[in-house]
């Protein structure tokens, strides 16, 4: 037992001092870049992500043009200093490409792409610091940046992860926890509880699944309130500036 890592302490607190159902501290700010059409910066605990959205603009290559709707292009890059080990990662890293395609698939039905036929929407995501939950932070950052860009979408998309430690469902795993326990990432539309992404790469007992799922969904709702507050705050600022 002593050799095994204890993820939950004797007081029922996790390694970073959180309770089971507690999210990491979340900080977000839309409109951080002036060059991009829309941008956002998000921190969830020690995971930090910068998102930039360009478009709708003319497609760069012929092959990407869709004649009835806009093409969504997602690129994710991990900063070389983002992890414990300093390492340059190429953009064609399989793991990163997989996350990018998950983000793309999440947003395709939500963004009203049919309004912008034959154009392209580019979403660039940069992970500045990595501490677990890459997929969820990418989706949350992209949502905020797309809203900031003024691209019509049906609803917010909020993503959150949950896992199971010692038969107990836990919310919002950090890197240490996600490498030792099964992790389930859920992205949903908070207003009508529709799920747009559900991802799990390890095994979880079916009896536990329901609880973990519910916990992740609750986390998404909490994230929604944080994002919504940030967006409203931002537009209030804009209105104040434009009314003067």
């Amino acid at each position: 037992m002593s050799s095994r890592l204890e993820l939950i302490g004797p007081q029922g607190l996790r390694t970073d001092g959180r309770r089971f159902n507690e999210l990491r501290n979340m900080n977000c700010k839309p409109s951080v870049l002036s060059q991009a059409d829309g941008s956002a910066y998000i921190e969830q605990g020690n995971t930090k992500c910068l998102a930039a959205v360009y478009g709708p603009r003319e497609a760069r290559t012929k092959a990407q043009v869709l004649h009835n709707r806009a093409n969504i292009n997602v690129e994710i890059s991990l900063a070389p200093f983002s992890m414990e080990e300093r390492k340059k990662r190429s953009k064609s890293d399989k793991r990163i490409l997989e996350i990018a395609s998950a983000v793309k698939q999440t947003f395709e039905p939500i963004i009203m792409t049919e309004l912008y036929a034959r154009s392209q929407i580019d979403i660039y995501l940069q992970i500045l610091q990595f501490d677990g939950g890459t997929v969820q932070i990418c989706i949350n950052a992209a949502t905020l940046a797309i809203i900031d860009a003024g691209i019509p979408m049906k609803d917010y998309v909020c993503a959150c992860s949950a896992g199971c430690i010692d038969d107990e469902p836990v919310l919002d795993l950090n890197h240490l926890e996600e490498s030792n326990t099964p992790e389930l990432t859920v992205a949903l539309l908070p207003k009508n509880d529709k799920i747009t992404l559900l991802q799990m790469e390890s095994r979880l007992h079916i009896d536990k699944f329901q609880q973990v799922m519910e916990m992740a969904a609750k986390g998404c709702k909490e994230i929604h309130t944080v994002l919504d507050k940030a967006v409203r705050e931002n537009i209030k600022d804009l209105l104040k500036k434009s009314s003067i």
């Binding site: 019509p152 609803d155 917010y156 409203r232």
Partner: peptide, 8 residues
């Protein structure tokens, strides 16, 4: 600020 709406 009551007239501010957000997606969804």
């Amino acid at each position: 600020t009551k007239n501010i709406v957000t997606p969804g």
